[in-house]
Measured scan of single mutants.
Amino acid sequence: SASLEDVKTAVLGLLVILQTKLYTLPASHATRVYEMLVSHIQLHYKHSYTLPIASSIRLQAFDFLLLLRADSLHRLGLPNKDGVVRFSPYCVCDYMEPERGSEKKTSGPLSPPTGPPGPAPAGPAVRLGSVPYSLLFRVLLQCLKQESDWKVLKLVLGRLPESLRYKVLIFTSPCSVDQLCSALCSMLSGPKTLERLRGAPEGF
């Protein structure tokens, strides 16, 4: 439990870093931090981490990651405290083949985003970082199938509809809506759902 406290501190630090690096160059920093966060949550489900502190780590990670939004130009952003989304000039939600690297070039400044813009690109060529939603999407499927803490599952179920409104997140990387529907149906009809959940409301 003591070591998990250190892990929790590290994860919180990564969330803060991602919130900053999403809007700064090099964009590969945001890509790497995002991948680290998603990989860490995957390990929770792989090794069945069920301690309360592990659940709190997942809760905080999902609470942040499910706020990711994308505009029509595929640029990622996060809402501010007033709910207004600021889109990044440097990070996009497109999935890119590994051989192309985590970044790609664009020939010049991008068109203005639909929300308040981030800082304008400084040079004639900007390297865009790929932060594909499919990585998070796979972890969300694991959550629906394996999550043991009701608070975490409730958060994910509550945030998913709003995330799905931003269709560009889903359609720019390999996210299977069929698998999502299947996971939701299995969660509702499967007898093991109630068996594994802690803290579920009576009558769920």
Rank of each mutant, 00 (worst) to 15 (best):
S1V: 07
S1P: 05
S1C: 09
A2S: 10
A2L: 08
A2R: 10
S3K: 11
L4D: 02
L4I: 07
E5V: 08
E5R: 04
D6L: 01
D6N: 01
D6H: 04
V7W: 01
K8T: 07
K8V: 06
K8Y: 13
T9A: 10
T9P: 02
T9V: 12
V11A: 13
V11K: 01
V11E: 02
L12W: 10
G13V: 00
L14N: 02
L14V: 06
L14E: 01
L15E: 13
V16M: 12
I17L: 15
L18P: 01
T20S: 13
L22F: 07
L22N: 02
Y23T: 05
T24E: 10
T24M: 15
L25E: 11
P26N: 04
A27L: 05
A27I: 13
S28V: 08
S28E: 15
S28P: 05
A30P: 05
A30C: 07
T31F: 13
T31N: 07
T31G: 09
R32W: 01
R32Q: 06
R32L: 05
R32S: 04
V33G: 02
Y34C: 03
E35R: 14
E35P: 02
M36F: 03
M36V: 08
L37G: 00
L37V: 10
L37T: 06
V38L: 12
S39G: 15
H40E: 01
Q42H: 12
Q42D: 13
Q42L: 10
Q42M: 10
L43E: 11
H44A: 01
H44W: 00
Y45L: 00
Y45F: 02
K46P: 02
K46Y: 14
H47M: 14
H47D: 13
S48G: 13
S48L: 08
Y49T: 03
T50D: 14
T50S: 12
L51V: 06
P52K: 06
I53W: 02
I53Y: 03
S55N: 10
I57G: 00
I57N: 00
L68N: 03
L68A: 07
R69V: 04
A70T: 05
S72L: 07
S72G: 08
S72F: 10
S72H: 10
L73A: 12
L73Y: 12
H74P: 02
H74W: 03
R75S: 04
L76V: 15
L76C: 12
G77E: 03
G77V: 02
G77Q: 03
G77F: 04
P79M: 08
N80G: 10
N80F: 08
N80C: 10
N80D: 13
K81H: 12
K81Y: 11
K81C: 10
D82T: 08
G83N: 09
G83E: 05
G83D: 06
V84S: 15
V84G: 12
V84R: 12
V85A: 07
V85T: 13
R86F: 07
R86G: 06
F87D: 03
F87G: 04
S88G: 04
S88A: 05
P89C: 07
Y90R: 04
Y90I: 09
C91N: 06
C91S: 06
V92D: 04
V92F: 10
V92A: 06
C93R: 03
D94E: 08
D94P: 04
M96H: 09
M96A: 15
E97G: 13
E97Q: 11
E99K: 13
G101N: 13
E103P: 12
K104I: 12
K105V: 14
K105G: 12
K105H: 15
K105D: 13
T106Q: 12
T106W: 15
S107R: 12
S107L: 12
G108F: 12
G108L: 15
P109V: 13
L110V: 14
S111I: 14
S111R: 10
P112K: 15
P113W: 14
T114N: 15
G115W: 13
G115L: 12
P116Y: 15
P116E: 11
G118R: 15
G118W: 12
A122T: 15
A125D: 13
A125F: 11
A125W: 12
R127Q: 13
R127D: 10
L128M: 11
L128I: 14
L128N: 11
G129E: 15
G129D: 05
V131K: 03
V131H: 03
V131A: 09
V131T: 06
P132T: 05
Y133N: 03
S134M: 07
L135F: 11
L135T: 12
L136H: 04
F137G: 03
F137L: 05
R138E: 15
R138Y: 08
R138P: 08
R138C: 09
V139K: 01
L140T: 11
L140D: 00
L141A: 04
L141N: 04
L141Y: 05
Q142H: 09
Q142V: 08
Q142I: 08
C143M: 04
C143H: 02
L144R: 00
L144T: 02
K145P: 02
Q146D: 14
E147P: 00
E147L: 00
S148V: 10
S148A: 10
D149S: 07
D149T: 04
D149W: 02
D149Y: 04
W150T: 02
W150R: 01
W150L: 04
K151C: 12
K151D: 15
K151V: 14
V152D: 01
L153R: 00
L153F: 03
K154V: 04
K154I: 04
L155K: 09
L157V: 02
G158P: 01
R159T: 04
L160A: 01
L160N: 01
L160F: 05
S163N: 11
S163Y: 07
L164I: 05
L164A: 02
L164W: 01
L164S: 00
R165V: 05
Y166A: 08
K167W: 02
K167E: 03
V168P: 07
V168I: 09
L169C: 06
I170Y: 13
F171S: 11
F171A: 12
T172Y: 02
T172F: 03
S173H: 04
S173V: 05
S173N: 04
S173Q: 04
C175E: 05
C175H: 05
S176T: 05
V177K: 01
D178S: 08
D178A: 08
D178H: 05
D178F: 03
Q179C: 11
Q179H: 12
L180S: 02
L180W: 01
L180T: 01
S182V: 08
S182T: 12
S182A: 14
S182Q: 11
A183K: 03
L184S: 00
L184D: 01
L184H: 01
C185S: 05
C185F: 09
S186M: 11
S186R: 08
M187S: 03
M187H: 01
S189M: 13
G190I: 08
G190V: 07
G190S: 12
P191H: 13
P191E: 15
K192Y: 12
K192I: 07
K192E: 12
L194R: 06
L194A: 10
E195F: 06
E195P: 06
R196Q: 08
R196T: 07
R196E: 04
G199P: 06
G199D: 11
A200S: 11
P201I: 05
P201A: 06
F204L: 14
F204P: 11
